[in-house]
Design a protein around this nucleic acid. Structure first.
Lengths: 288, 288
DNA sequence: TATGGATTGGAATTATTATTTCATATTCCC
DNA sequence: GGGAATATGAAATAATAATTCCAATCCATA
């Protein structure tokens, strides 16, 4: 009896992560068909959790018996006990992202004290990040970065609610040694500052409804000088969109009357660092 | 044949939410044992997804046949198709929060193009929000809000990386008609501005390592005037912490050398709106 | 309290699914 | 290139699980 255990030196993985690691470790040494299943299992864990031996085998392109051999090689006594691990994973994994947000929102609405306010802002920020992550168009991002990377000076234009983003962009551009100009002068010199911009420069303009009239006005006048604009705004009807070469639609969730900035911030930073990288690459190419 | 359909006027619920609603609607009119299963199903949806008819019936305290009758009453043709709905629910719910972040990080590291930069910032922001949501101390939040709500003027102090947060706080306080002063003057008048602050005022100071010397210096001098400080910083060793009446430790994740601001922003907004609410409440009480 | 209909329990039956077996193919090593 | 060890495919078999059926029970109503 106890001798049988000798073959079981290798412990049977009981949780998904251990199993995953084990599979990846042995990946090289596995026979072809077994490896085929291994790959399929890690790629489609939900299928393993719910399917039958036959259906899984079919969708992995092997025989059911191979599936069982796979399980046995891993130390399980059959497919069924392997499947338990995949099911456990689904049971134990945290509640879904949406459920989590929902919980935060409920706490934010119903909760007592100021914690609920905080939860509300966290939920708004998370929602916004989630949305932008889904909707951002990669091609737009590339276009915007290319455009900005070519600019001699990057002008950053934003007022009121969007101003914090602009100031962070300016800070980051500065750290990356990218020439930039934040258009914010309280002294009313904005028109003059804008006057210096040429078509060889570029603008990042940020404005959300209700659009600050000054931002729109400045965007118009700078675009009339032929300076290309990258806009971050909240709808295709935004007046900013019509002046822009490239524009991003960012939907920020709000709470207690204040919209989140997190999605806009993430996009702004991606643009900034993207420009930094692009310039380094271009520099290298020129030298090489 | 087609006559049989008459009894199937009621559409079979295909998704979990519809099913749930249907069950709740009929709750009253269900026979005892069937109701028993209905309750068990809604309370333990995972068990329905993974169990066998026998095991589920046992844990609900009924016979397997009753479970099947339950499914049939709902319009399914058997337990198996009812179970599909419960399984679908697990499949479709988004991957867990951690898995999601993990995926983003992997994409950010391995990915090509500038999308990966963007993903990195989104991941950093999400991580930060997640962390602060876990670690924020409710009592500190209450303390800070009480302290700030009593202030005649709220001074907002932050430079460099933290400045965007300060400017958003100033914007929000302004919208809430709360008197505030952003200490940012480029004209070197900060010392004079600070000189006006009295112990009846309060300060929100934000600084992260490497701490801007000006922020620390100004915080010191303003605290020596007896003005209470609420600090947002990144460790208990922060020089800001020693001057502060209340301080928050916020760990922001970073990407490409730039830290996220999302957690700090959420906290800042909670403080701001919290102060607004507290003042309204206090106002009402005084009037009442 | 008798009677009909609905509900329930439990075993029998049927269907489905996992596992085993064995013949065949492949690979690796001498 | 030959032979042993290993891996694979396909069908047979065993196990498990869903469903059905019928008798027993419950409940409302006359």
């Amino acid at each position: 009896m106890s001798l049988d255990r000798a073959t079981m030196d290798e412990r049977v993985p009981r949780d998904f992560e251990t199993l995953r690691t084990t599979i990846l470790e042995r990946r090289e040494s596995l026979p072809k068909r077994i490896a085929q299943i291994a790959a399929h299992a890690l790629d489609n864990p939900d299928d393993i959790a719910f399917g039958t031996a036959a259906s899984i085998a079919a969708s992995a392109g092997v025989q059911p018996s191979t599936l069982i051999r796979f399980a046995q090689q891993l130390g399980f006594d059959g497919f069924t006990s392997l499947q338990q691990v995949f099911r456990e994973r689904l049971r134990e994994r945290n509640s879904s992202y949406d459920e989590r947000l929902q919980a935060l929102r409920v706490k934010a609405e119903g909760g007592a004290g100021h914690r609920s306010i905080f939860d509300g802002f966290v939920a708004a920020a998370s929602t916004s990040l989630n949305d932008i992550s889904r909707t951002l168009d990669d091609a737009h991002l590339e276009d915007a970065i290319s455009l900005l990377a070519k600019a001699e000076t990057i002008y950053v234009l934003a007022k009121r609610r969007s101003y914090p983003v602009a100031s962070y962009i300016a800070y980051a551009l500065g750290k990356l040694k990218i020439r930039n100009q934040l258009i914010e002068s309280a002294a009313g010199l904005n028109a003059e500052m804008i006057g210096f911009a040429t078509p060889a420069d570029a603008v990042i303009a940020i404005s959300f409804s209700p659009y600050a009239p000054a931002t729109i006005e400045e965007a118009r006048s700078i675009s009339e000088q032929g300076v290309p604009i990258v806009a971050i705004t909240d709808s295709s009807f935004s007046p900013l969109a019509q002046f822009a070469k490239v524009w991003f639609e960012v939907a920020e969730a709000d709470f207690a009357g204040f919209r989140s900035l997190s999605a806009t911030m993430a996009l702004a930073m991606a643009l900034t660092v993207g420009v930094g990288e692009k310039r380094r690459d271009t520099g290298r190419k020129r030298k090489g």
